[in-house]
Computed example of a mutant assay.
Amino acid sequence: MSTSHSGDRDRDDAGRARNARPRDGLGRPLPYGSPGVDRQPEGVVRTPAQTVAQAQELLDAGRPFHAHEVFEDAWKSGPAAERDLWRALAQLAVGLTHAARGNARGGARLLRRGADGLTAWTGEPPAGLDPQALAAWAGRLASRVERNPAPVDAAACTPRLRKAS
């Protein structure tokens, strides 16, 4: 997919709006022409195992915004029975993004929303995911950023997505 910048909005070859500005590791837009980090391609269909592995790599690298994009692909392309799970994981990643950017209020809110979604999810977790441990992690991090609104180090706060084996 190529993206062009002209006038008011960036558009892809199909005419859909796409922001082509480079982004930093936390997904913040940078000026055109600036070096940024590689973006995650949109609309990629992955297996649950591929989704979890790629998202974990991005989280470990301190790139939760980009992990959110991977979870969003699973949420939008996966089976209907798993969509709430993937959406909750995307919310956790965005919550961590906000906390790392110093937006404690938004970070805590999204971390708690994702934790609620994980706690409510009753299906068999795909790809070894550990929804209960992730919900607990999110609750602890939300409380931490509410007490201390300073930006967190996203890589140092990374959750483990899979159950310990």
Rank of each mutant, 00 (worst) to 15 (best):
D116Q: 15
M1N: 09
T158P: 05
A120R: 14
A156T: 04
Q54F: 05
A142Y: 03
P35G: 07
A80P: 10
Q56I: 06
D116Y: 11
R87T: 00
A81S: 15
G25F: 05
Q50C: 00
A49N: 10
V52P: 02
V37I: 12
A74T: 02
R140C: 00
V94C: 04
L118K: 05
R87L: 10
A138L: 09
L129N: 01
Q40E: 15
P48V: 01
R11H: 12
A67V: 07
V44T: 13
W121K: 01
D12Q: 08
N103S: 14
D73N: 07
L96Q: 15
V145W: 02
A20M: 00
P64D: 12
A61E: 14
A115Y: 12
A49G: 08
L118V: 05
R162E: 09
G123T: 05
R87A: 04
C157A: 14
G106H: 09
R83H: 13
R83G: 07
L58A: 02
E57K: 13
V52C: 08
E82H: 11
A164V: 11
N148S: 13
G139I: 02
V70A: 03
Q56E: 14
V70W: 04
G106E: 11
V152F: 06
R23K: 15
L161N: 09
L129F: 11
R83E: 13
S6N: 09
V44S: 07
P22S: 05
Y32T: 00
L161C: 10
P64R: 07
R101F: 05
V70P: 02
P41T: 09
R140I: 00
H68L: 04
T119S: 13
G106K: 09
N103E: 15
D8G: 12
F71W: 15
